[in-house]
């Protein structure tokens, strides 16, 4: 590896580490959250550096963007008294620090021989790519080879949403939207739909896919909702429920149909793989987008029954 590559990697690594320490150590919770968002963006750069553009997209949209929004929203709801009582990490904690250091050293010992080894799954994926129905290996793994993981993951998202929903609604004060922000969101929201759709479509051949697209769509919807350009969204609308549940339902239905028709549970019949995967991805994208939107902005009207 050449020197300037090392300089890049070294700088990125050092920055990430410093940011992580600062996130835990800095006194104000607000600054800690802001630094954490910067930490996420740097991670996205590292993923791109390590040849994982899918992850860079996902990290920037989900890891840094939406997690940051959620953290800031939570910060906004925490009372002033609680903010004052913030306690950062102090370094006087001898035993815990020592324990973590020892663990880190042991783990370094464990990862030491790993760079020279190889994975049996890389050639296996390459072998089966032709049958997978899509051209991009990551999408093939997500929706063909390990579709069951992806289905369960949609259920995890659904479950998180249900869990959040049953907690008592804690509504933040909605400030009046400023005209400039409204104008800019009017421009950005269609753009996010366009780029989301593009990412979804492109996902079958190149980096991109349902999760990245869903996160982008959600970002657009959140912006519109915050500027008051979108009506209140709530679980009590049938179509919202249909959108949220649609991803899992279509996925499960296609999986069971595969078993029924003899191509195996979550298997696709010859020649149908491409269209079926696209169908699943479209529903999954809509479902992810709606769920993430509601997770961030919450419900505005529903009261506990």
């Amino acid at each position: 590896m050449s020197l300037h590559e090392w300089m890049l990697d070294g700088t990125l690594g050092l920055l990430v580490l410093i940011l992580a320490v600062a996130v835990l150590h800095v006194r104000s919770l607000y600054i800690s959250i802001v630094l954490f968002i910067a930490f996420g963006l740097l991670l996205a750069l590292i993923w791109a550096r390590l040849g994982a553009p899918d992850l860079a997209l996902a990290e920037a949209a989900i890891g840094a963007g939406l997690t940051g929004t959620l953290l800031l929203a939570a910060y906004g709801r925490v009372s002033e008294r609680r903010r004052k009582a913030e306690e950062p990490l102090d370094w006087h904690a001898g035993p815990a620090l020592l324990l973590s250091l020892i663990i880190a050293v042991i783990l370094m010992r464990a990862v030491w021989p790993l760079p020279d080894l190889d994975s049996a799954l890389v050639p296996a994926v390459a072998d089966q790519m032709a049958q997978s129905g899509v051209g991009h290996p990551v999408t093939a793994v997500l929706l063909s080879f390990r579709a069951w993981d992806t289905l369960l993951e949609l259920l995890v998202l659904l479950l998180a949403f249900m869990a959040v929903r049953q907690l008592l609604p804690s509504l933040p004060r909605q400030p009046e939207a400023w005209p400039l922000l409204q104008a800019w969101s009017r421009l950005l929201a269609p753009l996010s739909v366009l780029i989301g759709g593009y990412l979804l479509w492109r996902g079958s051949a190149d980096p991109g896919g349902a999760f990245q697209a869903g996160a982008l769509l959600a970002a657009g919807a959140i912006l519109l909702r915050l500027t008051g350009l979108l009506p209140a969204l709530g679980w009590h609308h049938f179509w919202i429920r249909a959108l949220i549940l649609g991803g899992c339902m279509v996925f499960l239905a296609i999986g069971v149909a595969g078993y029924w028709l003899g191509t195996g549970f979550l298997g696709y019949a010859d020649g149908w793989a491409g269209p079926l995967i696209l169908l699943i991805e479209v529903f999954a994208t809509l479902s992810i987008a709606t769920t993430l939107t509601l997770l961030v902005i919450g419900e505005t009207r529903e009261v506990r029954e």
């Binding site: 994982a52 899918d54 992850l55 996902a58 990290e59 989900i62 890891g63 994975s119 799954l121 890389v122 994926v125 290996p137 990551v138 093939a140 793994v141 997500l142 080879f145 390990r146 993981d149 992806t150 993951e153 995890v156 998202l157 896919g209 999760f211 992810i288």
Partner: peptide, 12 residues
């Protein structure tokens, strides 16, 4: 690609 897919799942 398997690890990349697993990390996407992990992120969600």
């Amino acid at each position: 690609p398997v690890m990349h897919a697993l990390v996407v799942t992990g992120l969600v």
